[in-house]
């Protein structure tokens, strides 16, 4: 317990509240609901053990599910995304990571962070829509929706990163 990062816990709660109370009510053009809560999993420290990342993804997804009234859709998607996180990180080339750095916009290069966010958002959105429908019947529609939503979510995460995050070097 002594190693609990209370800042992360606070961030968790804040993101859940913003997601369920504000963003879940948004339905741009009748299609796009940004899923900002993905950002929590994206920005967890590099050093965090993988099982903890997966678990926090599950927990975050459950919280969003609880408010949305659907069972397991967000939890399943976010758990999966949290699991493939190290893979995606390796996939996109980046410079050597220093000890204090975190996977946030200020610590990393913009192209890396944008690409990383977009890939994760695409996978996540696809799974959310897929689990929600549980079929690939309207595959074209599914893809278009995934693309639109992922782009918007990426945009929102980048925006939030610009507005509310500072470089980790200060700590």
């Amino acid at each position: 317990m002594k190693n609990v990062d209370w800042k992360l816990v606070l961030q968790f709660l804040l993101i859940v509240v913003v997601q369920v109370l504000v963003l879940n009510s948004i339905c741009l053009w009748g299609y796009v609901t940004p899923l900002l809560y993905l950002m929590f999993v994206l920005t967890l420290p590099f050093q965090m053990p993988s099982w903890l990342v997966v678990s926090s993804g599950f927990l975050m997804g459950m919280c969003v599910d609880l408010f949305s009234g659907v069972m397991g859709v967000h939890a399943a998607s976010l758990t999966f995304v949290a699991f493939i996180r190290p893979l995606v990180m390796q996939l996109i080339p980046h410079a050597a990571i220093e000890e204090h750095q975190r996977p946030i916009l200020y610590d990393m290069h913009f192209p890396w962070f944008a690409g990383y966010t977009l890939v994760m958002a695409l996978v996540h959105q696809f799974l959310v829509f897929f689990f929600d429908a549980l079929s690939l019947a309207c595959f074209g529609h599914l893809l278009v929706m995934t693309l639109l939503n992922a782009l918007f979510t990426t945009f929102l995460i980048l925006l939030v990163q610009c507005l509310f995050y500072n470089s980790s070097k200060r700590y």
């Binding site: 053990p49 993988s50 099982w51 990342v53 997966v54 678990s55 599950f58 997804g61 459950m62 599910d65 659907v70 069972m71 397991g72 859709v73 939890a75 399943a76 758990t79 999966f80 949290a82 699991f83 689990f131 549980l134």
Partner: peptide, 21 residues
């Protein structure tokens, strides 16, 4: 491989919830 086990366990729970709902 503990993260793999954790992942499989949690994902199963979530998927079970999705499928059985």
């Amino acid at each position: 491989y503990i993260h793999v086990f954790v992942f499989v366990a949690l994902e199963s729970i979530a998927l079970y919830a999705v499928v059985s709902s």
